[in-house]
Design a protein around this nucleic acid. Structure first.
Length: 451
DNA sequence: TTTTGAGTTGTTCGA
DNA sequence: GTCGAACAACTCAAA
């Protein structure tokens, strides 16, 4: 009998460029296992779970095409793995290293009891490996990105194996039901098609179009990156390839966005407290208003500010939101409504297909001005100006806020300015912008003063 | 140790 | 409509 190795799949739902899969194949027969960990199912993120379940379904299909299949088990990972080791007589487990606080603690616990080997793959560099000269982690993006780029020699991708030997007879629980998301079909094949399409075509107008909410100017690959249906290394590889083809392209700008992913992964790795409190301790004690009625209006897309409502409804309906829109709604929640950024962070985690602790927390703290390398706290977005600039024709608003579909020109961005009344839509924004700036600055100064 | 240059994504005002 | 400057001042990274 051939030796068997477990390939424990976590956030690497792909066959291409998969180091733990390759390591397992070298041992002998491979047992691809995904564990439904109750701890990770506790958050009410229905849409993201459905995306994951569909991803498991397509992964199983792709495995079967290579002579293998996916084994799904529920329970505490340590118990499940122990049981599988006994069932199969396997002596090794390979998995891609995951850097969230929970994952690190879980993997430590398992490594004490079982032969678990963690491999690279979630990031291009291990978060502990890019440090300043004094040995401390970077907390400013630009110098971090310079070192990151300077060290990059070239990326060798591991091709997807043509055949994955797996012994039959190991039982799997039935794969969970899911409802397909028409905007984001799940799975590696879809991710690869989208990567190819983006880096061949739209990346060349990325600089001009990436902030335009009414266009498809971004890659929209984040849900696939979130679950490793596409690896960060593959994305970087494609960016470098596009860069080589066309120097004037947006490939460099997109590469920077990928490095931001890794920057925030290493921030969370070195400063796990950011999930609980402000990275900048001086801004840990802002006296938030935390008005529940305002929060509800924000969540439902009923604030009376069209661009905010459009974005919040896009999130609810599709599980995705344009990056520019994320900044606008985050700024509105934190600076205009003076609601704790952690409330917004949680809502995003519940609703985003790409909901990822590191990137989401980094983005929220950046907008709130509490984070690393953050926006200055006195910088407060004007949602109407943002709307005019990045949805110039109002198409984004009209698409997601049907009540406003008959308004044109400037009116769709700020219907109250001309006293236009629309049925079923707030007559005026829920907050008067005239008071926002002073109120916010006062709250932030109060935290600094009390420090 | 000290100094120096620089820092994702803005807004507002007045000329 | 467009342009530049002020906003307020701090921290980081590296020489």
């Amino acid at each position: 009998m051939n030796p068997t190795a477990l390939w424990w799949i976590r956030r690497d739902l792909r066959l291409t460029d998969n180091a733990p899969l390759q390591a397992a194949i070298k041992i002998g027969e491979v047992l691809p296992i995904f564990i439904l960990d109750p701890h990770l199912l506790s958050r009410p993120a229905v849409r993201r779970l459905s995306f994951l379940f569909e991803g498991l379904f397509t992964l199983d299909r792709d495995l079967r095409a290579r002579g293998s299949y996916l084994i799904l088990r529920s329970g505490d990972p340590l118990d499940v793995l122990q049981m599988l080791m006994q069932e199969t007589g396997s002596r090794s487990i390979f998995a891609e290293e995951d850097f969230t606080p929970y994952a690190r603690q879980r993997d430590m616990r398992i490594m004490h009891a079982l032969p678990l080997t963690l491999t690279a793959g979630q990031t291009v560099y291990h978060p502990g490996n890019i440090l300043k000269n004094d040995g401390k982690p970077y907390t400013v993006y630009t110098p971090y990105s310079k070192i990151w780029k300077a060290r990059l020699k070239g990326i060798d991708l591991i091709p997807a194996p043509g055949n994955i030997p797996t012994s039959t007879g190991i039982s799997s629980e039935p794969l969970p039901e899911f409802s397909p998301n028409p905007q984001f079909p799940s799975g590696e094949q879809e991710a690869l098609v989208r990567l190819e399409e983006f880096t061949f075509q739209r990346i060349h107008s990325y600089i001009e179009n990436r902030d335009r909410m009414d266009l498809e100017g971004t890659s929209a690959l984040s849900p696939y990156l979130r679950f490793g249906m596409l690896g960060l290394g593959q994305a970087v590889h494609a960016a470098k390839k596009a860069l080589g083809q066309n120097k004037s392209s947006g490939a460099e700008t997109w590469l920077n966005e990928l490095i931001w992913h890794e920057f925030y992964i290493q921030i969370l790795y070195h400063f796990p407290q950011v999930t609980k409190t402000a990275f900048n301790p001086a801004l840990a004690n802002i006296p938030w208003r935390n008005d529940l009625h305002d929060f509800e209006a924000w969540k439902r897309g009923n604030t009376g500010v069209p661009v905010v409502d459009a974005a919040m409804r896009q999130l609810r309906e599709t599980g995705w939101m344009h990056n520019r829109a994320r900044m606008i709604v985050a700024s509105f929640l934190v600076k205009d409504l003076l609601i704790d950024w952690r409330w917004g962070e949680e809502w995003f985690m519940e609703n985003l297909l790409d909901g990822d602790i590191a990137a989401n927390n980094g983005g929220w703290q950046w907008t709130a001005g509490t984070g690393t390398d953050a926006a200055p706290y006195f910088r407060i977005f004007n949602p109407v100006l943002q709307s005019l600039k990045f949805d110039p024709n109002g198409d984004y608003i009209r698409r997601w806020v049907p009540e406003l579909r008959d308004l044109d020109g400037r009116h769709v961005h700020a219907p109250w300015e001309k006293g236009i009344k629309i049925q079923d839509y707030p007559e005026t924004p829920i907050v008067d912008r005239a008071i926002v700036k002073e109120r916010t600055l006062e709250a932030y100064r109060s935290s600094i003063g009390n420090n």
